[in-house]
Every structure is written in C-alpha cells, then in structure tokens.
C-alpha cells in the first residue's frame, strides 16, 4: 500500500525519500507498472518518481568515458549522436527493444535496475565494460555492471541507493561489437537468447575479447570460456566452431514457455557462429 508519493526534483530529494526504507523507485514505469498490476512486484510504502530529476538525464562525454544519465530513454539511446558514434552496439540493441512507445518511455536506468536476464541493453553494456554509479545518503560508489546483478530481478543495489549514472569507457580504436538477439521480428520480443561479441580486430582475429549472453542464465552473463577460446585466434572455421562450442557449454539456460534449455544452447551455438562469421568477413 502506497502511503507517500514523492515527485523528486533533485537527487537529494530522491535519496531522502529512499532513506526511509520500503520505497519503490519509478522512472518510465514500463516495468514497475505492469509488474505491480499483475502482483509480481509489491510496491513499497513510498513511491519515488525520479522522472523530474534533471541531474539524472542527459548524455555526456567526460574525459575518456561516456556518462549516460539513467533517465535516458531507449529511444534517445537509439538516436543520440554520441551513442551512434562511439557505442553503436548500444544503439543497435535499443533499436531492437520492445516497441516505439516503450522505447519512448523506458529508461536505461530502469532496464539496468530491473535486472532481467533478458534485459536487451544489458548484453551490449557488458560488452562495453560499463560501470554503474550508485548514490545513497552515505555517499557514492562505482561498480562494474557485471558485478551488479544478483539474480533474476535482483541486483546488489542497496535499498537506500539510487542508480545515478551508467558509465561506458570510450572503446579503443579498432574495437568492434555485435549484438544478436534471437527473434522472429525486428523488436517486440522478449529475448529467448541474445549474444554479444566484442573485441579489437587485429591479425584476422579478436583481441581483448568480450562475450556476453542474455536470457541463458539467472543474470546477463559474460562468457569467459568463449572469450578465452577466441582471444587472439585467427577467425577461421575451426576457431569459430570452438568458440561456439565453448559458448553453448558455458551458458546455463532453463526451459520455460519461450524455449527449452536444449534449444537455447543450440541457438547460442549458432548465433555465436553467425556473429563470428560476420565479424570475420569484416
């Protein structure tokens, strides 16, 4: 039962509202509203609307990282020049995200905090080595995104904390990243499986390889075994097959109404192969 509604205008106001405990933060509402209506999410006693906190909006290049305000909508990510220029893989994932209406409402901060294993922006953010900034009335801390997730719908954000920034380092020259989401249509599909592969192209192969998967484990995950299989290897058929095999073995999918675990593994294998063939072709 909601007893207090706070339409915060500053981070401080939001943190003050959170400090009382038992609070639910809402930004775009695209996750919180349907989940609470369906009874899957119990709203706290305080509802904190952060949509009007100016400091949480906007995108900026500061030094060697891009600072993405958590209120940045998915549509903004898809269209913003900074993202298109420096982090095109994130723009690409944003284009495949839900529907235009949800892209207009939903925020990157919400997608991160919702911590869905199938969150569409999370795989590219993992590829980009993104970090999150969390603030509370006690201070602020930064955390690698890959350490942020704790389970389906669960993160290591503490109850009094607010996500205040998503930070992505500017990729090196030669960095390439691909995001492949399985589906029968351009968007409006909850991921059955998604695959991301990134690295710096050199000598016909990838260096500093990063691999990430969505919807195949309790959280979005990095794929260290696949990364290892690829690191520095020339992308020939054997290397690609070895990486695809490593990928299908290191994911931990479940069977649900969308797919069986068997099929998810097969998809991971085939999508990794497809992406790598694509990368090898240049």
């Amino acid at each position: 039962m909601v007893e207090r509604y706070v339409a915060a205008k500053t981070v401080e106001e939001a943190l003050e509202a959170l400090s009382g405990g038992d609070a639910t933060v809402v930004a775009g509402g695209t996750d919180v509203m349907p989940q609470s209506q369906a009874g899957r999410l119990k709203l706290g006693r305080t509802l904190v609307n952060i949509r009007r906190v100016a400091a949480l909006s906007g995108l900026a290049l500061t030094g060697d990282e891009i600072n993405i305000g958590p209120l940045t909508t998915v549509a903004d990510l898809n269209e913003h020049d900074l993202i298109r220029q420096h982090l095109p893989v994130l723009a690409d994932a944003a284009d495949k995200f839900a529907s235009p209406q949800i892209r207009n409402m939903g925020t990157i901060g919400g997608n991160v905090c919702n911590a869905s294993p199938a969150g569409d922006l999370l795989v590219p953010l993992l590829l980009l080595n993104a970090e999150v900034e969390l603030r509370s009335s006690n201070g602020r801390r930064r955390m690698k995104l890959q350490d942020f997730f704790a389970g389906p719908g669960k993160s290591h954000k503490k109850p009094g904390e607010l996500l205040t920034a998503i930070l992505a380092p500017l990729p090196k020259a030669g960095f390439t990243a691909r995001f492949e989401k399985f589906g029968t249509r351009p968007a409006l599909d909850i991921s059955t499986v998604s695959v991301g592969i990134a690295g710096v192209m050199a000598y016909g192969g990838l260096q500093e390889v990063r691999v990430a998967f969505g919807a195949v484990a309790p959280t979005p995950m990095r794929g260290p075994a696949t990364e290892h299989a690829l690191e520095g290897k020339k992308l020939d058929d054997a290397a690609i097959e070895a990486a695809a095999q490593a990928a299908m073995q290191e994911v931990k999918p479940i069977s649900d109404v969308r797919a069986t675990d068997w099929y998810r593994r097969e998809l991971v294998h085939n999508l990794v192969r497809k992406v790598l063939q694509d990368v090898a072709r240049g």
Binding site: T30, M33, P34, A75, S99, L188
Partner: peptide, 23 residues
C-alpha cells in the same frame, strides 16, 4: 494492460507512450 498491444497509445509532451504502463 501490459504495453504489448498499443490500443492505449497517447501522446505525452508529443511522445507516444502506452498509457497502461504510465503512472
């Protein structure tokens, strides 16, 4: 009621949104 069908689409400050997902 879940933002999947678009029948509830409205414009808010000129942007189209699902009114069923909006507080």
């Amino acid at each position: 009621g879940e933002g999947e069908c678009g029948a509830c689409t409205i414009l808010v400050d000129g942007l189209s949104v699902n009114s069923c997902l909006m507080f």
